[in-house]
Design a binder for these strands. Structure first.
Lengths: 234, 234
DNA sequence: TTTGATTTTTAACCACTGTTAAATTTAAGG
DNA sequence: CCTTAAATTTAACAGTGGTTAAAAATCAAA
């Protein structure tokens, strides 16, 4: 074991703390400063509750908190966050593949079920699901050692028309939007071809399977894809 | 709906309270007085913690507590207890049938997983498991309306030699004993025939499948069976 | 640059569930 | 019937995680 050990003893970190850390990761994509009002909103708690927790996490060396500016994960905290996100995404996978939940319900239901998952259950689920690599929305599942796999994908609204590829993930939290996307075949692993993109953040036309769909710019920005650049006429 | 409604608003009852209520049911089989030192032991908390909780449950009208004597479930509390036990047993069933856990691990693991189960998940599990009637140990699963089905079974150590029947359930909590019982085929739904029973709480001989087994009196008292009385020579 | 609005933090509080140490009650034996 | 041991309850306290109201800091606009 050459890897440096996490410097906070594991049982000092409560489930609630893990929830906060995971949410900080999600909000900052692991890097950026996050203001704790956003944390409070996401976790549905009051501002002061978030402030106090953030300061506690700071004391433990899990995050860096600069008053009136925000909070950022430190390496130790990031690892805790990633392990929590791993568990969350495995549970989502389980809910959708085994318990017949829809992908639009997966996130919230996973928040509930996750409270009852320990390491034994997590490992069992991982094994029974065949060590899945992504959650139902296409997000990669961090490894057991706390590393987030990189996909190298990009949002649909930045790639040039003519590009073909596969949808990698859907970064959207609203249930109704998720249901709509599913209904038109906008799901991870689906093949697509971007036909055109109107300027000034206008709508996009794309081919999905046999059909052609037109979607708004905002929706497009939540759809991430893997693609080769289009052939260019010389 | 002619049934009288539970008189305590549901959200006044915490998960911890449900744990206490369920444990009181298990200790008193729903009827007898239970001393709260026993509760404390089962839930692995201090005596005072149990005392305070019992008094709180008393205030809510869920149990009757007589100081220095013990505690007994009132109808409202019993219903809450039974619904908690229902969830517990469904989760045990799920763990064993779906997640490949052994029946000896089921109880403790279910205590963990149950924390993450809400009504939606419970119903889903119930449906996917085909509305099972018993937990892996053979205990009946209370109905959704909070009624415990009666089995009419008896402990093996009180039935007369010569009796044949089926094992209905195994009331044993020790993991090693459960594993042993499973290894000799002493599991719910197994057919048996009691060959002899030595006096003075001596060992019992019984036929299980093709084999004959000898078991101690104490073990026998935890094995409950359904049987017709033996033919008697006149 | 000063003011006023907004964001963020501090202060003070509450509820729940756990703890240990002390007091009390019950029960049992001489 | 009294004494002592054991069981049970009370008292006092700790930690977590939530709340609202007030204070302080930041930001934007006049």
């Amino acid at each position: 074991m050459s890897r440096k050990t996490v410097s906070v003893s594991n049982d000092k970190i409560s489930d609630t703390m893990r929830d906060y850390l995971a949410e900080i990761y999600r909000l900052g994509h692991g890097k950026a400063w996050v203001n704790n009002t956003a944390i409070a909103e996401r976790l549905d708690v009051s501002g002061p509750a978030a402030v106090r927790m953030v300061r506690r996490l700071d004391k433990l060396g899990l995050v860096e908190h600069v008053p009136y500016q925000g909070v950022k994960l430190l390496p130790t905290g990031e690892k805790v966050a990633l392990l929590s996100i791993r568990r969350h995404r495995l549970v989502e996978r389980f809910l959708v593949d085994q318990l017949q939940f829809g992908w639009h319900e997966a996130h919230d239901q996973a928040d509930v079920l996750q409270k009852g998952i320990n390491q034994i259950l997590e490992d069992r689920i991982d094994r029974l699901m065949g060590h899945p690599e992504t959650c139902p929305h296409g997000n990669p599942i961090p490894t057991k050692s706390g590393v987030m796999p990189l996909l190298g994908d990009k949002p649909l609204n930045v790639i040039p028309p003519g590009t073909a590829g596969k949808i990698s993930r859907v970064r959207e939290r609203h249930e109704d939007k998720l249901q709509y996307m599913e209904s038109i075949g906008l799901v991870p692993r689906a093949s697509f071809e971007l036909i055109s993109r109107a300027p000034f953040d206008g709508p996009l036309r794309l081919k999905l399977g046999q059909n052609e769909q037109v979607i708004g710019h905002e929706l497009a920005s939540s759809i991430w894809v893997l693609s080769k650049p289009p052939m260019v006429m010389v």
